[in-house]
Simulated scan of single mutants.
Amino acid sequence: LQELPVFAALDLGTNNCRLLVAVPTRHGQFRVIDAFSRIVRLGEGLTASGRLGQAAMDRAVEALKICGDKLRARNIRKARLIATEACRTAANGVEFLDRVEREAGLKLEIIDRQTEARLAVSGCGSLVERDTQGVVLFDIGGGSSEIALIDLTGHRSPRLANHIVSWTSLPVGVVSLAERFGGRTVTREIFAAMVEDVAVRLHAFDGRDRLSHVLASPKFHLLGTSGTVTTLAGVHLDLERYDRRRVDGLWMDRDSVDRMVEKLVGWDFQQRVANPCIGADRADLVLAGCAILEAIRAVWPSERLRVADRGLREGILSELMADDGAWRSRGRQ
Rank of each mutant, 00 (worst) to 15 (best):
I296K: 01
P276A: 05
M321N: 09
D268F: 00
C277R: 01
S329L: 14
R259Q: 08
L305Q: 01
D258I: 10
W300Y: 09
M260S: 15
A298K: 14
A308V: 06
L312S: 08
C277I: 03
L320F: 01
A274P: 09
R282N: 06
P301W: 13
A280V: 12
M321W: 03
I316W: 02
L285N: 07
D281E: 13
D309Y: 01
S329K: 15
P276C: 10
V307N: 09
G279W: 03
E319R: 14
G279E: 04
A291S: 07
A274D: 14
E314M: 05
R313T: 14
L312Y: 13
A274G: 08
E303H: 14
R282W: 08
G289W: 00
R328N: 11
M321P: 05
C277Q: 02
G315L: 11
G279T: 00
I292D: 03
R259E: 12
A291T: 08
L287N: 07
G315D: 08
R306F: 15
G311A: 12
L285S: 05
W300N: 04
Q270P: 03
P301Y: 12
G289K: 12
R306W: 12
R313G: 05
G315T: 11
R313C: 15
R272P: 07
I278P: 00
L285D: 06
R272D: 06
R297A: 05
E294V: 11
V273N: 00
G315A: 07
D324E: 14
W267P: 08
A291G: 03
G315Q: 04
G325M: 13
R259H: 13
L320T: 01
R304Y: 14
D323F: 10
A322K: 11
A308C: 10
A322L: 13
L312M: 13
Q271H: 12
D324H: 11
W300V: 06
